[in-house]
């Protein structure tokens, strides 16, 4: 079991998902799954967020939106791609308006598979993101000290 040291806030953006993963992300925040027990709160403001959850693939129109949200988030930050569409385009890979997974626009740290990704898998992804966030924070401090 990971020891959670900080309470990370997350921002959720729906790329071009079918809503399946989308509502599963929301289901994680509500009773039964409840990621708030890890101190995680969903925020709408990118400048408040530590973890960026993206569902769905990337297309020409939402790529700038995703990049802009990513740029606005303060360091350290972790990007979690939720669902197979966010990982590599999934079932819509061959569509003319899908460029591919989230990693075509911004660097992705954690990939959560599934169609739709199950809440257990999403929570696992978030918990791993928390650990990674700690690591990134440590590295940042180290760099600052040098």
């Amino acid at each position: 079991m990971l020891k959670v040291s900080k309470s990370p806030w997350l921002l959720h953006y729906d790329g071009s998902s079918c809503n399946g993963c989308d509502i599963e992300v929301l289901a994680c925040l509500t009773p039964v799954y409840d990621v708030e027990r890890f101190g995680v709160i969903n925020t709408g403001n990118p400048k408040h967020a530590d973890i960026f959850l993206i569902t769905g693939g990337i297309n020409a129109q939402n790529a700038p939106v995703v990049k802009q949200i990513y740029a606005q988030m303060p360091n350290p930050k972790v990007v979690v791609a939720v669902g197979i569409c966010a990982c590599n385009g999934g079932i819509f890979k061959d569509c003319y308006n899908i460029d591919g997974g989230v990693d075509t626009a911004i660097p992705v740290d954690i990939y959560v598979p599934g169609c739709a990704a199950r809440p257990e898998a999403i929570i696992d992804g978030v918990v791993r993101a928390v650990a990674l966030l700690d690591e990134k924070r440590k590295n940042m401090r180290k760099e600052a000290a040098q």
Binding site: D14, G15, V65, C95, N97
Partner: peptide, 11 residues
């Protein structure tokens, strides 16, 4: 609109 357009009818 068009942020979520995938074009799945073409598939």
């Amino acid at each position: 609109i068009g942020f979520v357009h995938r074009g799945l009818e073409k598939l």
